[in-house]
């Protein structure tokens, strides 16, 4: 890292900070129940729900903090918060 004049930072550089380590619980999709409504992608504060080619979604566990908003909001009850085993 070098000091930049005036402390200017490049865009999107927090990606180096993998907040996935914060988790106590991890969300897991049940694709049988999922209706592909996309609400989970919208409500994730950490931009860690990503759309897949087949219309379902997947988690970016590098950044997911396990807040559980997706599971709480899912209208199809298709997300389960599972204790993080490590």
């Amino acid at each position: 890292m070098k000091i930049t004049t005036g402390g200017v930072c490049k865009a999107g550089t927090t990606l180096v900070n993998k907040t996935g380590g914060w988790r106590s619980f991890r969300p897991v999709f049940n694709y049988e129940k999922c209706k592909k409504c996309g609400l989970c992608e919208i409500v994730c504060p950490d931009m860690s729900v990503l759309p897949k080619e087949d219309g379902f979604f997947k988690y970016n566990y590098d950044y997911c903090k396990g807040c559980g908003i997706c599971a709480n909001e899912c209208p199809a009850d298709a997300i389960e918060m599972v204790l993080e085993e490590k």
Binding site: A11, G12, T14, E41, P45, M47, N60
Partner: peptide
């Protein structure tokens, strides 16, 4: 299948609390 999610311009890796309201507000 509902409308596609618009693109946002906030990267993950920020230090907001788990479930942070400010992160959601900025994202939207």
């Amino acid at each position: 299948m509902s409308k596609p999610t618009p693109k946002t311009y906030l990267s993950p890796g920020h230090r907001g609390c788990a479930g942070c309201c400010d992160a959601l507000a900025a994202k939207f």
